[in-house]
Design a protein around this nucleic acid. Structure first.
Ligand SMILES: [Mn+2]
Ligand SMILES: [Mn+2]
Ligand SMILES: [Mn+2]
Ligand SMILES: [Mn+2]
Lengths: 222, 222
DNA sequence: CATGAATGTTAGACTGGCCTAACATAAGTG
DNA sequence: CACTTATGTTAGGCCAGTCTAACATTCATG
């Protein structure tokens, strides 16, 4: 069975389950899935049951949701599709990095394996998407991600952005204004704990970031 | 209501109804639609009923199927999407003209209005798809098609191909071998009526075409 | 550790899209 | 023009995916 034979909704479930452990260890909950897919928890419960029946996830009632090897393979393929499409939209069609997520979220279910392959070739086998996220290779091996949230960096350190969560387009536009993107270097000036503010220096400008912004940015020391 | 709010199947029905009168006058029948969409007639009957309920077609039981103005607008938009996507796949992703129809048949339901617009700009507002078919403009005006089937041309005339039906990929590959495509010039040597064979000269080669091939090719005198 | 709040599941209903089988109508032919 | 055949419609069933409402389980906190 190839990933194209699954329904769009099954593809999204698998991708989301896989993604939930890419940058954090927390396994995903039914409620979180429902919220992210903008459906009711009962709908997700039902969907998970169908996936379990197909052998793509394991799930005991009220228990945790785990991908089977088959489910994981499909999930990784969907992540590959999503990120290649985002890259394609930016590189070839001139989209902004804040515009591509929603478009890719639909297209990922519609493109053929052939089209993904041609896009991959046209782009020269890219390894990171416009948000810095690793693009799993065609043989199903995800590039291991690296980095830590900006919030966990000690003050005074200079770091480089590895990825920025693409969940919020408005936030991405704000980051664009600030000159923040993958591979941007910045210095962490201070965390102000009770204000939940992280101050950074990027270029010659000092910027205060609230927790949602600071948690969307992942960095490596350098 | 924009065309994106319709289901994929409704979009395909409308497109097919419209297309049936683009090159021939015959209004489409339930049976023909069922065959082309590879579903049973009862399924089409049902689908037409839903479209009528939405005010997109008019249909009396056992009567003819007609698009309403709203239905026609959606249909033309879908034809535009389909043909722009075919052109895009050939021009940008290096597809062959025999490969694009099936891919576009799916993608047309998934791309956003924005993406169609960017593709149109990237391609420089093309007016014909890889098979020579006219691409309706963004304001909903279809370019009027022109030409007559090759079978209707008098012998000895020299003509130019305006379009070739994209229904059969194998046939398109055969035409590629023969050097036949949109804008190819050829001379009609003879129609042999009971053999149902049309002989043409293309370049320095004489070729016999059977009826299905000859009917797929539309030409203008020149 | 008991209990109320949060979370998750099940039951039942609805829609679109498909099917088969039975039925209705239209078209063609002797 | 009657009757057969081709074509189209309806009835009833199934599945995926969604919802609301009712119910079940788990978790956290007093
Ligand atoms: Mn998606
Ligand atoms: Mn991304
Ligand atoms: Mn289609
Ligand atoms: Mn075409």
């Amino acid at each position: 069975m190839t990933v194209s034979e699954l329904t769009a909704s099954a593809q999204d479930y698998l991708k989301m389950i896989w993604s939930s452990t890419e940058w954090a260890e927390a396994p995903i909950t039914v409620g979180a899935m429902a919220e992210r897919m903008a459906v009711k928890p009962s709908t997700v419960s039902d969907g998970i049951r169908r996936l379990a029946k197909q052998g793509l996830v394991t799930h005991a009632p009220y228990g945790s949701i785990e991908l089977t090897p088959a489910g994981r393979a499909h999930a990784v393929e969907m992540v590959r599709r999503h990120r290649l499409l985002e890259t394609f939209l930016v590189q070839i069609l001139g989209y902004g990095w804040d515009e591509v997520h929603d478009e890719a979220e639909i297209l990922e279910h519609a493109v053929s394996d052939t089209m993904i392959q041609r896009i991959d070739e046209k782009l020269g086998h890219p390894t990171r998407d416009p948000h810095g996220d690793p693009i799993p290779s065609g043989n199903g091996l995800p590039h291991p991600p690296q980095g830590d949230p900006l919030t966990s960096v000690e003050p005074e350190r200079t770091v480089t952005i590895t990825r920025i969560s693409d969940a919020d387009p408005d936030m991405l536009r704000y980051f664009t204004q600030l000159g923040l993107g993958p591979d941007t270097r910045l210095q962490v000036l201070a965390h102000r704990p009770y204000a939940d503010v992280t101050t950074i220096r990027v270029g010659d400008r000092d910027v205060d970031l609230g927790p949602s912004a600071a948690e969307a940015i992942w960095v490596v020391a350098n």
